Simulated assay, not measured.
Amino acid sequence: MIGVAVKHVAAQTRTPAHYLLGDMVNVDAQFRSEAQYADALTKYKAINVPDERLWEMIPGVSPSEVERWKSMRTDQAAAVVGGDLASMFGTKPDPAPTDDPTPAQEGV
Rank of each mutant, 00 (worst) to 15 (best):
S62Q: 07
A10W: 01
V66P: 03
A10F: 03
D84R: 09
M57Q: 07
Y44C: 07
F89K: 02
P63W: 01
G3F: 03
R14C: 07
I58M: 15
L41R: 05
E34P: 09
T15R: 09
N48T: 02
E52V: 15
Q76G: 03
R14W: 05
M72N: 14
A86C: 00
H18I: 08
S87G: 00
A5R: 10
K43G: 00
V4G: 05
T102F: 06
E56L: 09
A35C: 06
V9Q: 04
T98K: 12
P50C: 05
R14T: 06
R32Y: 13
P95I: 01
T15S: 03
A38L: 12
K43E: 08
A35H: 12
G83V: 04
K43W: 02
E52I: 11
V66I: 13
A10Y: 03
K92G: 00
R73W: 07
G60F: 10
E52Q: 10
A5H: 06
P93L: 03
G107R: 14
Q36Y: 11
T15Q: 10
V80T: 09
I2G: 08
A5G: 08
L20S: 07
T102N: 00
V25L: 12
D39Y: 11
P59S: 05
V4H: 09
P50A: 04
H18R: 14
T98D: 01
T15I: 15
S87F: 01
L85T: 12
E106W: 14
T98F: 03
Q36L: 11
A29M: 04
M72S: 14
G82Q: 07
G60T: 09
P93D: 01
P93H: 02
D100R: 08
N48H: 11
R32A: 08
Q12D: 05
M24V: 09
A79T: 00
K92D: 01
A40Y: 09
M24A: 15
P103D: 08
K7G: 12
T42D: 13
K43I: 04
W55R: 12
I2T: 10
Q12M: 10
A46T: 04
W69V: 10
P16I: 02
A78K: 11
L21C: 13
G82D: 07
H18N: 13
M88F: 04
T91Q: 09
G83Q: 06
A96R: 10
W55K: 05
